[in-house]
């Protein structure tokens, strides 16, 4: 019941209805519905192969499935990924997609949208504006790189980074955009604990400023700590949903997932 009242006061930024995706016989996502309120952090957990990443792909338009996806009051299923991204949603990839033959700095500077110099004629017509923008973008990139503790690598090719560093780069690139919804696929996997805590802090800071997060994570203590709500997936279905304390108590969740970790 309290759910209804919730909805009235808080605006849901993303709502998904009856989402489905099959790979041959595998029902990767099997009729999922969920709502995410603006300005919250939502954790998406579940065992390996539960369908979490597939859910991300469906929401961000990288896979086509069936069902209805509303983002900021607009239907986005059927839209190509770049249009969805422009609505103010950015996602990271579980396996980092570093642009290997570009430098770390270039990887970040690519990200911001509506760059004047991305229009071909502007390269000749609006040189000054581009120069100014480039400077701003570069400063911002360096700040973010510094936060993620990889500033010293800014001129290295991204292909030369270690696995964990690529993971950081992936996240840093997403942070370059100031989206309304940030979807992170296992942000803490392979990241050292101190830095992971620092990133958690940063996420909470951004949430305070109004950003919404949907985060897939296997590190249960870390994700429950920063989440306002946890959604548990198993075999393509959403099996539980609620505040972290509640989820931690649920026996069925413990059985499929938390049980293994003690």
């Amino acid at each position: 019941m309290h759910y209804l009242t919730d909805q009235v006061v808080k605006l849901d930024i993303l709502s998904v209805r009856n989402l489905k995706k099959h790979f041959g016989g595998v029902k990767a996502v099997d009729g999922c519905s969920l709502k995410i309120d603006a300005g919250t952090v939502v954790g998406l957990i579940g065992p390996n192969g539960a369908g979490k990443t597939t859910m991300f792909k469906l929401i961000s338009g990288f896979e086509g499935g069936s069902g209805e996806i509303m983002f900021k009051g607009r239907r986005i299923d059927k839209l190509p990924p770049f249009k969805i991204a422009r609505c103010g949603m950015v996602r990271t990839f579980q396996i980092p997609h570093a642009l290997t033959k570009m430098t770390v700095l270039e990887n970040l500077m690519l990200a911001p949208n509506i760059q004047c110099g991305e229009q071909i004629w502007n390269i000749w017509l609006r040189r000054k504006k581009i120069k100014e923008q480039e400077k701003l973008i570069k400063d911002k990139s360096q700040k973010i790189l510094e936060f993620f503790e990889i500033l010293h690598l800014e001129d290295e090719y991204a292909g030369a980074l270690s696995g964990g560093q690529k993971k950081l780069l992936e996240m840093a690139r997403a942070m370059m955009i100031d989206p309304s919804l940030m979807m992170l696929d296992e942000p803490f996997a392979g990241v050292n604990p101190t830095l992971a805590r620092k990133i958690s802090g940063y996420i909470e800071e951004l949430r305070e400023s109004g950003m919404t997060f949907l985060i897939i994570e296997h590190d249960i203590p870390a994700i429950t700590k920063i989440s306002d709500k946890i959604i548990v997936m198993n075999e393509g279905k959403i099996m539980a949903e609620g505040v972290p304390e509640e989820i931690k108590q649920r026996q069925d969740v413990l059985d499929v997932y938390l049980g293994g970790e003690g």
Partner: peptide, 17 residues
């Protein structure tokens, strides 16, 4: 920069809009 990112992995520029 966008062109090069397409050469490297076009899903990245797509995801960035």
């Amino acid at each position: 920069r966008v062109l090069k990112s397409i050469r490297e992995d076009e899903s990245v520029p797509s995801a960035l809009g």
